[in-house]
Design a protein around this nucleic acid. Sequence first.
DNA 1: AACAATATTAACCATTTAGTTAAACCAAAT
DNA 2: ATTTGGTTTAACTAAATGGTTAATATTGTT
Lengths: 201, 201
Amino acid sequence: MGSDNTKEKIVQAAQLVFIRKGMDGARMQEIADEAGINKALLHYYFHSKQQLFNEVFYGVLSRLIPSLLEIFKLEEPFSDKIEAVVREYDSFMSKNPFLPQFIINEINRDPEQLSRFMSDQGLNFSKIEERINGEVSAGNIRSITFPHLFANLIGMVVMPYIGRPLFQRKLFNNDSAKYDQFLQERRAVITRFIQQAILTK
Amino acid sequence: MGSDNTKEKIVQAAQLVFIRKGMDGARMQEIADEAGINKALLHYYFHSKQQLFNEVFYGVLSRLIPSLLEIFKLEEPFSDKIEAVVREYDSFMSKNPFLPQFIINEINRDPEQLSRFMSDQGLNFSKIEERINGEVSAGNIRSITFPHLFANLIGMVVMPYIGRPLFQRKLFNNDSAKYDQFLQERRAVITRFIQQAILTK
DNA sequence: AACAATATTAACCATTTAGTTAAACCAAAT
DNA sequence: ATTTGGTTTAACTAAATGGTTAATATTGTT
């Protein structure tokens, strides 16, 4: 084959450009340049911009979901589960730092499709919701509903990635290394924060 | 005057379309339609898309910042301050539910300009950072650095707005009224969550 | 080597889109 | 009523952009 990795190079380039510019702002030409190839070759591998976007986006997403599903199944003590969820979520984010912004855009662009995709992948929250409610009834955690807990968790994990260009400037004098360290610390900080907030000791 | 409110109608329409589609996805024609006017009239009031976007975006933003500055000045007990910040931030969000998405986009599109604007408006965090550190030293709150606390707070407040199209579907059967109620509850929930997490009682 | 299949390119096309222009409209002032 | 100012419109333009085509190159197969 001419090159098996051309397709991969395109996907890499597309990730870069899509996250930098968003689906609409991204230009096929820019993706081609970034990948070091001709624009027509893009359409050889992915016949439309929409298809390229979908393959990139849902490709990455489908790698996140299984690991989350796995965690929700575990039957550890609840305090450990908090740690596991934060760890898994955050570790994925640090490997795919562009993903949150990606998802946010897609949430607004085509929420229906995204929602359907998640359902198709078997991701639904009713089990976890029951578990949380159970823990509350049992008095193991302070009274909180699942949606609130979920929004809190996701918000805390995701915000530093979404807001990085601004936060790094405003809070760390645009020092990239310091920000990386900040991101590393967050896993422990968030876990402790949630535990202190909801665990009845 | 032909109409003093034409400009206002345009701004309203632009907010709507920009948030729905983002700066790049938005079409001047769509904004014109939404405002019930001719496309040329847009360029009569705002000579370019970029200018329209900036006026809309920074217009809204400049209304948020002063109220936040005000709060940071207050010298109440810390627990009340938490409540005040959450209240002010959240109340602004509920009046401008499109703002978070707006800011997120801008953070990626032109972080430098955004950062400069915030500085120009007198928004800087060193004072608050000192205050937080002081409270930690004094033993009033558990050990946490300002950036972490800040990211936690913003994340929790903002996430339900950013994620609404998805969250509403997945967590509330796409019931809009229920989601509105959820948003209303969050102010109290977040305040309590933070207090329990960091206040040494 | 010859052939076939896949990969890659340069040039081109059709459409969309931000922005312009020149004319019409309308309200108030003279 | 006419002039004058801002306002609004329909029609137009130039540039950008996603996508196509047809020809060329490369690789694998017999």
